[in-house]
Amino acid sequence: MRVITALDAHHRSAAPCLLFVCAGISLCVTAVAHSNLAEHTPTLEGFVHGLAAQAAFLCVTVAMLLQSWWLRTDPRWRARFPLAFALALTSFVALWVDVLWHGMPRGLEQRVVIALILEWLLLATLWLRRHRAA
């Protein structure tokens, strides 16, 4: 079986892929472990949920930054670099705003970060589908 990749071998790294895998595993742990409730005593399971959620956010945003950065090295993908990197950087900054500043309701901050991540992933999917069709 021949694997077809969008970026040439010398224009890519395994790091984004590994970070996306770690993010996926962390997201699975987040889904399985129940979060702590405000009116109850904190539990180990709630701690694991919170830690896994933060790991998922951090891994996926760093993977997006790295993958976007690699786009600039490939002539076929270089034109897509500015938008991909800007969106990845905005997601990364939004994550740190969520972690460090608690001015907005907690759920709203997290939803903004999730929306930015999904926008980057959908954009990357669209670009890859177009690349494959060409």
Rank of each mutant, 00 (worst) to 15 (best):
W77K: 08
W77E: 04
R78M: 10
R78L: 02
R78E: 01
A79T: 05
A79P: 02
A79Q: 04
A79H: 05
A79L: 01
R80Q: 14
R80W: 09
R80F: 12
R80E: 00
F81N: 00
F81Y: 08
F81E: 07
P82W: 07
P82Y: 10
L83P: 04
L83T: 13
L83S: 11
A84H: 14
A84D: 08
F85K: 04
F85H: 11
F85M: 11
F85D: 08
F85E: 10
F85I: 12
A86D: 06
A86H: 09
A86N: 13
L87W: 13
L87S: 09
A88D: 08
A88W: 05
A88G: 10
A88Y: 05
A88S: 12
L89K: 14
L89M: 04
T90A: 15
T90H: 05
T90N: 05
T90Y: 05
T90W: 10
T90K: 06
T90D: 01
T90I: 10
S91H: 08
S91Q: 02
S91T: 12
F92I: 06
F92M: 09
F92P: 01
F92R: 11
F92S: 12
F92Q: 06
F92E: 03
V93H: 05
V93Q: 09
V93K: 02
A94E: 05
A94N: 06
L95N: 02
L95I: 06
L95C: 08
L95R: 02
W96C: 02
W96M: 04
V97N: 06
V97R: 13
V97M: 01
V97A: 14
D98F: 03
D98T: 02
D98Q: 08
V99S: 02
V99A: 01
V99Q: 07
V99F: 07
L100D: 09
L100H: 07
L100Q: 01
L100N: 13
W101T: 14
W101R: 10
H102G: 11
H102C: 13
G103Y: 02
G103D: 10
G103P: 00
G103A: 05
G103K: 02
M104C: 13
M104H: 08
R106D: 05
G107C: 07
G107K: 00
L108E: 12
E109R: 00
E109K: 01
Q110I: 09
R111C: 10
R111M: 09
R111K: 15
R111Y: 14
V112M: 13
V112I: 14
V112E: 05
V112A: 06
V112S: 02
V113P: 00
V113G: 01
V113Q: 02
I114S: 06
I114R: 11
I114W: 05
A115Y: 11
A115V: 09
A115I: 06
L116I: 13
L116E: 11
I117M: 15
I117P: 00
I117E: 14
I117Q: 13
L118W: 03
L118Y: 03
E119Y: 15
E119R: 15
E119T: 15
W120T: 03
W120Q: 03
W120N: 06
